[in-house]
Structure formats: structure tokens, C-alpha cells
Design a binder for these strands. Structure first.
Lengths: 228, 228
DNA sequence: CTTGACGTTTTGGGAGGCCAAAACCTAGGT
DNA sequence: ACCTAGGTTTTGGCCTCCCAAAACGTCAAG
């Protein structure tokens, strides 16, 4: 029942990383985890072992790691906290969305649950973090995965989300096109054979290539049924 | 030059406690420190030894502990952070001044310096914490000590501050008299022989006994010179 | 089917944190 | 001047967290 019961900073960070890694890619190995956490392989293994004992994940030595339902719930709770703190940094302290990320990680861990909730309310129960990703409900064990911009079809309307791990140069380029987190876009045309998209962004038509479009996530709003 | 350079949670907490303890009372012994931190005597000694190696305090075994100038600066920086966080909890999240205290301690430690400053600005550079105690400037090595309410003389005007360690029942009683942090009071009469004070509080005259008055701190505003 | 190479886990070591209990000072009473 | 009581420090243990390097599995190429 109880979602957490005293996880340490690195344990929470590990769960978050595992959730991310498992969302895109088959088996997650401790090596990938170590990279993602910026930690030595041995350290990653040790943390994994501890979490396995608490039944937050299954560890098949040399084979891979998989979160249990409980582990996924804890990971999502950690993400919720992270995203709320990001919103705080952006909305109350005026940080840009791509700065908030960096700072949130450093002090989200010791934030009491109670304060997290008050903060959420004080921020007016935001639906997304400053990157545009949804803030999950508490206690859920799954977040619906977001499609990429390039997965949309002609006529689709969606809201943009940009991952914090996106190459800063790409981010800057997107910015010049008006493609920023939270912005609404409509797909005007999608050229075949991995061709570019033509989008309606802030009253202007913009063209985006496939490689760049694949780095943008979206929240589909509604599909405009467009014929019979 | 650099005020901190990576102190841990307990190290900072130790410095704060030592600053408090040394402000009222001669030698500070590790026992008092341990009590104040809610930690075993051995743990207190160990932390003291570590801080001594960093030249933040002098430790004369079996005799006592004393902060160095550097140590005092670090302690005050920690207090500044604590008080800013309290203000945040009170002003932005709506916590009562005596609740803020409890919660601030849990997450102030990992707050990046940078965020602390932004928070300070976002809060409109407050002069005091919700208890009524001043938020020190950064980088100072001393805070002027505050007199008690009972140290005032007839005609003095001052602002009330109430320590977080005050007995809750006393706090509640004070509340019924309108004596809350930040409230302005004027001393109408001071009876001799440890007699009661008569104060002007929020447009009403209130009488306060010596024992209670000694538990309230004040910020003197100006001495009204009242004769020749 | 053997043998590397590569990735994973274990081992050994260090630092912070905590405690309980043993060893140790210091000061006060006799 | 002793000696004991009370407070202080050390010791030994346990936990998280990190690393480097040794030991170990696995799998695929020869």
C-alpha cells in the first residue's frame, strides 16, 4: 500500500533512471544504468541489489533488471515530485524550462511529501512540467507513453514536449521555429518517404525534417476527422 | 574566502546548533550539542572532530568547542538559508510560522545556493523569518543579538520575535494577547521588582508577567527620548 | 567447442552518519 | 591526596554511497 517507505536519494534516482530506460528498449543492463546515473558499474549493481531486496525490481544477474509494479509506482512518484519542483522553479522563481531540470534534481529528494502536495496546490495543480510532460497522479503505476511529433498524421493537433536530454543546439533551433514546450501545433502536411512535416505553429507554417521531428514528443489533443 | 565548500547536512546542522548554544552560555560541551541535535554523544564528538579538521571550530577535548570566524560564517549562512526557506513555506505555501520551522529543516540542506538567492528575491528580500528573527546578510560572521521583551524600558517600541523552541502552550497564550511574530509593541509601564509589563499591542493595553516576557525576543525600533 | 572480449558482479577501501558500550578524563567530595 | 561519578571520547558495528580493480559469466567468433 505505502508507495515509498524511505528510499534514499540514489535509490529514487535509480528507479527513475530504470523507468526511463525501460520505456525505450528491451532489457536494461546495469551498465546502461550506471551510464545514465553517471556512476561506476559496481555502484549501480550494488544499488540494484538493495532495491531487489525491497522487491522494487527483479534482478537476473548478468541478464537484466526490471521494475516491479511497486517499483514503477515509486519511480513515477519520484517523477511526479521532480516535475512539480521543476514547475516551481519555472513558475515561481523564473527559471527557463531547460534550466529547471538541472536544479530540481539537487533538492527534490528531501522534500517532504506534505510540502510537495502544498506546492502542487500553490502552483494551481499544473498538468505538465515545464518541458511539457504530464505530471502523473500520485499512486499510479503507469504513465501513458507520449508519441513523437513524427508519429502524428495530417490534421492532428498536439502540444509540444521536449526532453531535457535533447541536444541544446537542436533545442535552440526548435526555438527559432517557435517549437517550445506547451506550444500547440497542427500537422498540415506529412511528406512521404521520411519526408518533412509542415506544421502550423503560432499562426505560421513551419517545415521540420524527420530527424528533428523525432526528437519532439507530443500530447495529441484531438484528431480532426477530415473525410468520409 | 569561500564560505562553505561542501558541508554535509549534519555538519551544517552542527554548526547552527553550536552557534545557538554559544550565543547563550559559556563553554559548549559535546553533550549539550548531542542533546540539541538529538544524537548520541559519540556522534556529536565525531562530527566535531571532522569540523575541527576543516578549521571551522576549535575542539579542546573534554573542555569544550568554539566556532572559528569561518565556522561562524558558515553557521550564519546556514541560518540564512533556513530562514529564507521558512519564509517560502509561510508566504508561498501558507504554512503557519510555527509549522514552517519543522519542515524547513528537512530540505534546506540540498538547496543550491543559486536557488536560495532567487527564492530570496522572489520573496521580495524579506528582512525576517516568520518567527520574526532577522535574515542575515550573506557572508557575515556575526548577527547582532536580540534583546528580550523584558529588557525594554518604558517608552520603547519594538517588534516581536518568538523562538521556535518556545513551549507551544506559552505560544498559544501569547497569541491570545496578540503577541505574534512581527507585531509592534510599545512598553507603557514596567513595574519594579520583576513586576509585569504593560504593553500597547494592536490598539489595546496588555499586561505580561516577567517569566513570559523573558521568552519573547524583540527588535528595538527607536527609543522615544521621553524627557530632559 | 574452445577462447576471448566485454560486460557484470564481487571485493577491498574510504568517507559520512548513526548507535551502544567500553575506555577515559576531570572535577568535586571525602 | 584520593577516588568516584558523570560527562567525553574511543571502539566496534551497521548502513548508504562512491570508486578501482579483481573475479567472474556469457556469448559469439574462430
Amino acid at each position: 500500500m505505502s508507495t515509498d517507505s524511505s528510499l534514499s536519494k540514489s535509490e529514487r534516482e535509480t528507479l527513475k533512471a530504470l523507468y526511463r530506460l525501460s520505456r525505450d528498449g528491451g532489457d536494461v543492463h546495469t551498465g546502461a544504468l550506471a551510464d545514465s546515473l553517471g556512476v561506476s558499474p559496481g555502484t549501480a549493481t550494488a544499488t540494484v541489489k538493495r532495491l531487489a531486496e525491497r522487491h522494487l525490481l527483479d534482478h537476473k544477474p548478468y541478464k537484466g533488471v526490471e521494475l516491479t509494479t511497486e517499483g514503477r509506482r515509486a519511480a513515477i512518484a519520484a517523477m511526479r515530485r521532480h516535475r512539480i519542483v521543476e514547475r516551481f522553479l519555472a513558475d515561481m522563481l523564473g527559471y527557463a524550462w531547460n534550466e529547471a531540470d538541472r536544479l530540481a534534481g539537487s533538492f527534490e529528494h528531501d522534500l517532504p511529501q506534505e510540502v510537495e502536495e502544498r506546492l502542487f496546490v500553490a502552483l494551481d495543480r499544473p498538468a505538465t512540467c515545464p518541458h511539457g510532460f504530464p505530471i502523473p497522479e500520485p499512486e499510479v503505476a503507469d504513465i501513458p507513453s507520449m508519441p513523437g511529433l513524427y508519429d502524428l498524421e495530417q490534421g492532428d493537433v498536439a502540444t509540444v514536449a521536449i526532453s531535457g536530454s535533447t541536444d541544446p543546439e537542436v533545442v535552440e533551433f526548435l526555438d527559432t521555429l517557435g517549437l517550445r514546450p506547451g506550444v500547440r501545433v497542427e500537422v498540415r502536411e506529412k511528406h512521404p518517404f521520411d519526408g518533412p512535416l509542415v506544421l502550423r505553429v503560432g499562426g505560421k507554417d513551419r517545415t521540420v525534417g524527420e530527424r528533428v521531428a523525432r526528437q519532439i514528443y507530443v500530447h495529441r489533443e484531438q484528431r480532426r476527422e477530415q473525410s468520409a
